[in-house]
Structure formats: C-alpha cells, structure tokens
C-alpha cells in the first residue's frame, strides 16, 4: 500500500521540516541568539566588520611610521581602472651613497576603485591590504583621492621586491 505509506511519509517529513524551523523560531523568539541582523546605526561603536570585508585599500604602517612599499608599481599596473598612481622620488642611501628609488606618494582614488583586489594580489611585499572601514561618503569628490603612505614615512629597510 504505497498510498498509506505516502501519507505517513508525507506527514513525517512535514513535521521534520517544522521541527527545524520551529527550533530556530523559539531560540530567536526567547533569546535572539541566532539573529544575525546588525542594528547598524545603533551599534556603530561596537560594529566590527569581518576580515574578508573589502572596504578600502589601506597601507600598513608599523609604530616607527615605516611601511613595506618599495614603489615597484605592480599595483599601479595591475589596477584595471587606473585608481592607483605612484609618485616617485630618488632617495640617497647615506651609507653607500647610492641613489635608490622610493615612493613619494601612493595615491589611491577611492572613487574609481571597484574593490576587485588585483592590486593587493599583485603586491610582492604585502604592503597594501584591505581596510574594513565603509564610511566613505563625502560632500566633495576630491576627498575620495587618498594618499596611502603617511607623511614622512619610510620603507622598512631591507624590504626586497
């Protein structure tokens, strides 16, 4: 009698589904434990985005105001939109007297960036990385052009391309 077993099997599977959803409902109704909603403007102080979140490109600096960018311009070449511009300078090493090229400004046009991440993949020294800030609104478009290396910063000595 497949007819009767159809009915009992149907009822069983329906109840099984209701058990799963009902469990989540009661957990959320009484404790809000499984709720994944972030009440955004209220939780501004405690909000922490995930590491994988692509907010903007930032350059990592250590406490001595040093970064790892050698100015190889791999990122500039990798960028499909031309959102990165690197301005160079010659830096003379006081010990050897040799002139070596280094970055003056690592210019990042946030307005042109599509967060594709190709620059970060291309960087041989891992100097640039994803930042998690997403409050990018400004009243003026020029403010979207950012200089990533901090003023007066230097490359960590010994960083190889």
């Amino acid at each position: 009698m497949s007819y009767l077993s159809d009915i009992t099997g149907g009822i069983k599977s329906l109840l099984g589904g209701m058990t799963v959803t009902g469990k989540y409902f009661f957990i959320n109704f009484f404790t809000r434990k499984e709720v994944i909603t972030e009440e955004y403007p209220d939780n501004m102080d405690t909000l922490k985005m995930y590491d994988r979140f692509r907010g903007e490109v930032v350059m990592w600096h250590n406490e001595n105001n040093e970064h790892k960018c050698t100015g190889c311009s791999s990122c500039e070449r990798a960028c499909p939109n031309g959102a990165i511009e690197i301005i160079w300078k010659k830096e003379v090493n006081p010990e050897t007297g040799k002139a070596k090229r280094a970055i003056d400004k690592h210019i990042y046009h946030l307005g042109m960036c599509t967060m594709c991440g190709l620059c970060i993949e291309a960087c041989p020294t891992d100097a640039i990385e994803w930042g998690q800030d997403f409050h990018h609104t400004t009243y003026d478009r020029t403010q979207l052009t950012k200089v990533l290396n901090k003023p007066g910063s230097k490359v960590i000595s010994g960083t190889k391309e």
Binding site: T21, Y24, F25, N28, F29, R32, E34, V35, I36, T37
Partner: peptide
C-alpha cells in the same frame, strides 16, 4: 514571526 524564523529581527 517571519523575521524570527529567518534569523532576522
């Protein structure tokens, strides 16, 4: 109730 079923508020 729909929200609680769907892990929302």
């Amino acid at each position: 109730i729909a929200a609680f079923f769907q892990l929302r508020l």
